[in-house]
Structure formats: structure tokens, C-alpha cells
Amino acid sequence: MLDRLTISMRASHVIALTFFAVALCFALIATLLGDTFYMRLASEALIFGGLALSVDFLLGFVGQLSLGQALYFGIGAYASALVLMQVPSFWLALGGAILAVLVSSLIGGLIVNRVRGIYFALITFGLAQVAAKVVYNTRELGASDGIIGIPVININLLFFSFSAANPLAFFLFVLAIIMGFYLLAAWLLETPAGRAMIAIRANEQRVAFLGYSVRNVRLGAYVFAAMIAGVSGALYPVLRGFVSPELMYFATSGNAVIAAIVGGVGTLIGAIIGSILIVGAKSVIGSWTEHHVIFIGILFMAVVLFMPKGIFGFIRERIEMRMIRKASAPTEAKTSDETGVAGKQA
């Protein structure tokens, strides 16, 4: 028999696969139409999707609301930018970002995991604001201007290389990385370590009495989520050619939380698509009016009120029910008509 958690994850995979197919179609159509604007916009949305995925991993599975996840997105972006200013190597920049995020999230994790619940949310918020202000006031990091003029680089992939300025190639590259994160997170949640994280969301106090070190499990989840945010951040300067302190601000963290909630907390893929909806809405509506925030606010309220599980949480539930019905169908056929009817009603 299939586990409930496994069924949920499979239902997420169905949405993820559909999303992947739609993204490829989008890339094809955009290329045929010779578009570069929307392709670059979609790349940016996917990068922020990585940040939202990181937020959803913590919120939806470990039960921790981080209001400062942009901290690691920003650290990844700055580390990547600093390396790229010296050496135009993507892999070196990525390595620098990973190292910086690993060290900072271990330190940050030891601080924020001393508390839980609302205090966790507040302390993650505070930590990110402090770091953003430090960056804002550090001349070596470009202070309020950030780091500009990051050269366009070639990304070497073993057998071939492409320019980061090539919108199609870069979009596909980002898509592969973000979907890779999705799969990595989904895989982790299907291991005993990941299940221990889920157990923390369900009842943190009980976990210790099963013999798990709650501190280590929480720290592991925190560092993993920070890595996703950090590597996503490392892609940002490659696309945009600059980084600025705003990347670490609450607006960035808050948008990721909104994306995860609109998309569907605990679905992983919903956070990524939610982020695309938000970035897309911002840009499209922003071209008509500067008050696009009003629209995002209304969208957020509508989802919270009418679809508390988020857009893709709602859809996923439907897929799950179909999967459960399908799984129990063979046994149903053997039993009498009565139970068959009951099964359909359920």
C-alpha cells in the first residue's frame, strides 16, 4: 500500500511534469517568435522560484516560517557576483556561493533554531535585515549601489558551452537547475532524514522521544533550504549583470512567502509556479499601472480566503483523490456493488 506522503509527492510530480512541459512549449514559442524579453523575465521568475521553493521546504514540511530567506539568496548572489568580477567562471562563482551559504547558514541556523514558531519568523526576519543593512553600508560591496557591471560569461557544460546572454539557453539552464532542486527536495523528503523533518512539523516535542536529535534535524533542514535559496541567488547576477542590497530586503523574502502560499504550501512545485505568477503579474500589470502591488495583494487575499491550500494545493488534492481511487479500484471490483458505490462516494 502506498504511503499518504508518497501519494502527495506523486501528485506534486504530476503537476511538476505538466509545468515542465508547459515551460518547454513556452521556450519553443518564444524562440519561434524571436522573443527575448519574456524569456529573460521567465528566467528571473524561475530564479525567484528557487527562493520560494526554499521557503516552502521550511514552511510546508518542517513547519517553520522564515521571513528572511532572502538572506541566503542575497549571500549567494553577492558571492557569485564577487567571484565573477575577478574570474569569469560560472562554476567557480557557484562554488563560492555554495561555500558562503554553507558557512552563513550553519551560523544562522544555530542562532534561529534556538527558538520556534512566531519567534523563529521574527528572528529570521531580523537576521536578514541586519545583514542587508551591513551590506548596504559596506563600500567594498558597493554599498547602496550594489555591484554593477558584472561581465557576461560563458557557461561551460562539459561537452559544450553557451553564453549567459543567450536567452533560450540560459532559460533552459535555469529551468534544469530549479527543477533539479525540486527533485532534490522531493527526494530528501522521501528519506528517513526527510521524514524526521516532516515529523517535526507534525509534533516537534514528540520527535525527541523517538530518539532523533531535534536540533540536528532542524539544522539540517535549515541548511538544505538555505542552499536552494543561495544557489538560486548565485544565478541572479549571471542573468542581470548586477546585485544590490534589495535582494536581501524583506520585500524579497516576503514575495517568496506570498509565492509559496499562493502556489500551495507543502507542494514544492506550487511555490515555483506561484513565483512565476507573481513575477509575471508584476511585470504584465506593471506595464499598465504602477500599482501592481494592489493586484498581488488582492490575489493573495483571494487565495487565502477561497483556496487556503493554495492554487496547486487545491489541484493536487484532486489529483491525490484520483490516485487513491485508482489504487483501491482493483480491490473494489472484487467486493460487492454496495462497497463499490461507497468507494466512489468516498
Binding site: 504511503d3 499518504r4 506522503l5 527526494w187 530528501l188 522521501e190 528519506t191 528517513p192 532524514a193 521524514r195 524526521a196 516532516i198 515529523a199 507534525a202 523517538l210 530518539g211 532523533y212
Partner: peptide, 25 residues
């Protein structure tokens, strides 16, 4: 909010060797 089986499985998996912690459940 976890299944009955998962409640028990979580307790039992803590006894698995550490090397299995990052393999599929």
C-alpha cells in the same frame, strides 16, 4: 496529521543504521 503507519514507522526508522538515513524510505 500523519498516517497511523507513518507514526509507527518514524519510531522504527530511528533504529535503522545511520547509512540508511539518506536513502529512500
Amino acid at each position: 496529521d500523519l498516517s497511523v503507519r507513518e507514526n509507527i514507522r518514524l519510531a522504527a526508522q530511528a533504529r535503522e543504521p545511520a547509512g540508511k538515513m539518506l536513502r529512500s524510505v
